[in-house]
Amino acid sequence: MSQGRGSAILLVAVAAAMVVVLHSEVAEAATYTVGDGGGWTFNVAAWPKGKRFRAGDTLVFNYNSATHNVVAVNGAGYNGCTTPRRSKVYQTGKDQIKLVKGQNFFICNFPGHCQSGMKIAVTAV
């Protein structure tokens, strides 16, 4: 009989664990390639539209590092296509950047590139 009680306790424990797993939300970070197959290039400003980003998601910027870069800027830098002091500049050509909650702004600060649409604004919840 004691074997039967042990099995019942194990069954209850497994059932309780399944309930917890089924009712918990698992928030997994997603990875997005900016510009999809075209990569980080001109006219990508509309690329974020229709996508739902979360804090902790990763943006992958693929580009030719001899002709482009990625600069994390504030709203003023994004709107004015300028690089505020202390902005983080990425230049590997395969940069991976984690999003923070709220607004995230990125530009290419090679002359004329941001003005030609090489910039994105992403809001992460």
Rank of each mutant, 00 (worst) to 15 (best):
V89M: 06
T58G: 03
K49F: 10
V70A: 01
T82G: 03
T82W: 02
R5C: 09
S24I: 15
T41R: 10
G102A: 12
Y78T: 02
K94M: 09
H68Y: 08
L59I: 03
I9Y: 07
R54A: 13
Q115K: 15
I120P: 02
I9V: 15
K94T: 09
K101Y: 07
A46W: 12
F110K: 12
V89H: 03
A27P: 02
V125H: 07
N104K: 04
F105A: 04
A124D: 04
N74S: 11
V71L: 06
F105I: 06
S24M: 15
G50P: 03
L22F: 14
F53G: 01
Q3T: 13
A121F: 07
Q103S: 12
V71Y: 00
S24L: 15
V34N: 01
G77P: 02
H113Y: 14
C108M: 08
A15Q: 07
K94R: 14
A27M: 11
V125C: 03
H23W: 13
P84M: 07
V21G: 05
A15Y: 05
F106M: 01
A124H: 03
P111A: 12
I107H: 01
W47V: 00
F106Y: 10
R85K: 15
N79R: 14
G50Q: 10
K94E: 09
D36M: 06
A30N: 08
V44K: 01
H23C: 15
G77F: 00
K101C: 06
G117R: 01
M1C: 12
G6R: 13
Q3Y: 13
T92C: 09
Y78R: 00
G4D: 11
N64C: 09
A66W: 05
G93N: 04
H113M: 14
A72C: 06
T92H: 07
V73N: 03
N43Y: 12
F105C: 05
R54S: 13
A76Q: 14
W40E: 00
S65R: 10
L99S: 02
Q3I: 13
P111H: 10
A72K: 04
K101D: 07
V12A: 14
F61E: 00
V19C: 09
A45I: 02
A46T: 15
A8W: 09
M1G: 13
N74H: 08
L10I: 11
V89K: 06
L22Y: 13
Q103M: 12
D95M: 03
